[in-house]
């Protein structure tokens, strides 16, 4: 059986890649992909540790909910990004700065 630390290391790496993609923000879609990485890192953790929680199965349930919610969030965000493109003709968050101090 694969030890659980391996899962944790992989999920930590996934999370860091996602966070980097989200923070370096060259492209709004890339930010969304980064967010998806982060959520999937969390899901991996939940499923891996769900194996030790066979009675309540909390981890598995959270994984299912997280997948659905991530899809809902991405759908809304994509619709918003489409609207942004209509006005700015770019989806680079750094170039979209009408609102600032």
């Amino acid at each position: 059986m694969i030890p659980v630390t391996h899962f944790m290391i992989i999920s930590a790496i996934l999370f860091c890649i996602g966070l980097y993609a989200a923070i370096s923000k060259r492209n709004a879609i890339m930010v969304l992909i980064g967010i998806e990485f982060m959520i999937n890192a969390a899901i991996l953790n939940f499923v891996a540790f769900g194996a030790y929680d066979k009675e309540v199965n909390g981890g598995q349930i959270v994984a299912l909910f997280a997948i659905v919610l991530a899809a809902a969030g991405v759908a809304v965000a994509l619709a918003i990004i489409l609207n942004v493109y209509k006005y700015y003709k770019t989806i680079d968050p750094d170039k979209i700065h009408n609102l600032r101090d």
Binding site: A22, G73, V74, A77, I80, Y88, L99
Partner: peptide, 14 residues
């Protein structure tokens, strides 16, 4: 308005 929505959605999702 679209800019506000995008900032809100991306920041919130992260």
């Amino acid at each position: 308005q679209t800019e506000a929505a995008m900032k809100y959605a991306l920041f919130g999702a992260v």
